[in-house]
Design a protein around this nucleic acid. Structure first.
Lengths: 273, 273
DNA sequence: GTCTATAGCCAGATAGAC
DNA sequence: GTCTATCTGGCTATAGAC
C-alpha cells in the first residue's frame, strides 16, 4: 500500500467515525426511528448524497451503531471481570451487572437502541449477534468459574420442562460450554430479568416508585445471582432460607421491622428512614 | 340533553374510536415515533385537518393510545385474578403474569409503546400513571392475600439498605397498603424482572436462545414469585432449597441430568429431548 | 365539523458533472 | 468522493369557506 492509499484510508475511517458520532448524537435527540442521513450530513457540513459513499443506506448506518453499542456494553461487562477478580461469584456477577448499568446510564439512547423496542421496519442482520452476546457471555463466565470452584448450586432438572432443558442443551452446545442444562436455563432467566431492572430504571417506570436506584439494583442483582444458583464462598449454608436473612411468616410484621432496626444500622451505618 | 345532542355525541365517540383504532393499526406498522395524523386521516377517508377536532395534537392521540393500552393490559391482569381464584399465591401470581404475557403477545406494538423505549420528544402526562399501575397493583393484590393467609415470607429487613426501605414505606403509604417494606421492595424487583422476561421475548433477544417460551416463562415467573416471598399452601417447607428441588453442587452434573429423567417424565409426561 | 388550500418543513435516494 | 439538482414522497399545523 502506498502512502497515499494509507492517507486515503485514514481519511475514510475518520469521516466514518465522524458520521457515526454525529448519528449517535442525533439518536439521543430524536430516537432511532427518526435517524436521518440528511440531518447527519447537514450537521457535518456535507451534502446528503456524500454520505452514501460511507453507508449505502440508513439501515447500514443503524447497524453500525448497534454493533458499536453492543461492543461497548460488552466491553464494559468484560472489563468488570478483570477489574473485579476474586473468588466470590455473587460479587463478580454484581460487578458485571453494575458495569452494564453504568454504561446504560451513561448511554441511555444507545441502550434503548439495543434493549428497547425494535426499530420499525429494521431487522438486525447476522453481524449483530456475536456482539449482542457479549454481556450474556460475561455473566456465563462468572457461572462457569463458580461451578469450577464448587460454588454453583444446580437446580434439580425437574425444575424445568424437557422443552426448556432441550433449548438449554442446544444453547450449551452452540456455545461449547459445559454448564448443566438446568443451571443454564436459570442463568438465561436471570440474564433477562437483569434487563428488566435496567429497562424499568432507564425507561422511567421507577419514577415515584424507586428512588434509591443504585442500592435497589445492587441488592436485586445479588438476589438474582443467588436465585440462579451462584453461591458466595463463605458459606453455601448462609444461602439457606431457614437461616437468618429470611423469616418465615411473621405474626406481627411491624414488630419485626422495628426489631430489625439495629441490624440495619449495623450493616449500613445509618438509621432506617 | 336533547336527542340530537345524544346523536352527535354518539357520532363523536364513534369517530374517536375509529381514529384510535386506525392509529393502533399504524402503530403496528411503523412504530410510535412515526405515528402520523395525516396517515390516519387518509386511511379513514378524512382529511388531516378534520382530525384536529378530535385530538388537538399528535401527542394527545398518543396519550390516548397509551392510556387505552395500560387499561387493556391492566384489565387482563385483573381478570386473571377473578378467573383464577384459589388459595395458592404462586399459582395466582403465575396466572396474572401469563395473562400479561398473552396480552403482550396479542398486542406487541402496544406493549412496546408501554414498556419499550420512550417515544422521543414525548413525555407522558399525569393521566397515564393510574392506568400504568394496574398490573403492579394486581401483583400486589396477590401478595396481600398471601400475607393474610400466612403465605408471604417477609425477607429480613437487613436484606435491603435503609434508603430502599424508605422508598418502600413511601410507596406503601401512597398506595395505602400495609405490606412490610422489605416484602414490598422485593415485589417491586420481581415486577420489574417480570417485564425483563417479556421484553426479551417480545423484542427478539430470545431468538436462538429460548424456543419453548411459554414453558420458560411459566417456570421463571413461578421462581420469581417464590423469590419475592410467595409460598404455595401445601408447604412452605417445600420451598426450602435443601429439600428436593435444589441440589447442592453435584460432582457429576451429566449423571444428575440422566438421573432426573424419570422425574422429568413423571412431571411432564414425555421424555427429555 | 368538514372541506380546500397553503405554508413551511422534512425525508431517502439517484443522476450526472467535476 | 463530493457536488448540484431533482424526483417523489412525507409531515404538523393553520386559515378560512361552507
Amino acid at each position: 500500500m502506498s502512502a497515499i492509499q494509507g492517507a486515503r484510508e485514514r481519511a475514510r475511517t475518520e469521516v466514518t467515525a465522524a458520521i457515526k458520532s454525529e448519528a449517535r448524537r442525533q439518536l439521543a435527540e430524536q430516537g432511532a426511528a427518526k435517524l436521518s442521513l440528511r440531518a447527519v450530513a447537514r450537521e457535518l457540513g456535507m451534502v446528503s448524497s456524500a454520505l452514501y459513499r460511507y453507508f449505502p443506506s440508513r439501515d447500514e448506518l443503524l447497524t453500525a451503531l448497534i454493533i458499536d453499542a453492543y461492543d461497548a456494553v460488552g466491553a464494559a461487562a468484560e472489563g468488570a471481570l478483570t477489574t473485579h477478580p476474586g473468588s466470590d461469584p455473587v460479587a463478580r456477577w454484581t460487578a458485571v451487572c453494575q458495569a452494564v448499568r453504568r454504561w446504560a446510564l451513561a448511554h441511555p439512547h444507545e441502550y434503548a437502541l439495543l434493549y428497547g423496542s425494535p426499530v420499525p421496519g429494521y431487522s438486525a442482520p447476522r453481524d449483530t449477534v456475536a456482539p449482542a452476546s457479549r454481556v450474556g457471555m460475561a455473566l456465563l463466565t462468572v457461572a462457569r468459574e463458580a461451578r469450577a470452584a464448587g460454588l454453583l448450586r444446580v437446580p434439580d432438572a425437574a425444575t424445568w420442562p424437557p422443552s426448556v432443558l432441550a433449548d438449554a442443551r442446544t444453547l450449551a452446545d452452540g456455545l461449547e460450554m459445559e454448564l448443566p442444562a438446568p443451571a443454564l436455563a436459570g442463568l438465561v432467566a436471570a440474564w433477562a430479568q437483569l434487563f428488566g431492572l435496567l429497562n424499568f430504571e432507564l425507561f422511567g417506570q421507577f419514577t415515584n416508585v424507586v428512588e434509591a436506584r443504585e442500592e435497589f439494583f445492587a441488592v436485586s442483582v445479588g438476589t438474582l445471582a443467588r436465585a440462579a444458583g451462584l453461591c458466595s464462598p463463605e458459606g453455601i449454608a448462609a444461602e439457606d432460607p431457614d437461616a437468618p436473612g429470611y423469616d418465615t411468616v411473621p405474626e406481627d410484621p411491624q414488630a419485626r421491622d422495628a426489631d430489625a432496626a439495629t441490624e440495619i444500622a449495623r450493616r449500613f451505618g445509618q438509621a432506617g428512614a
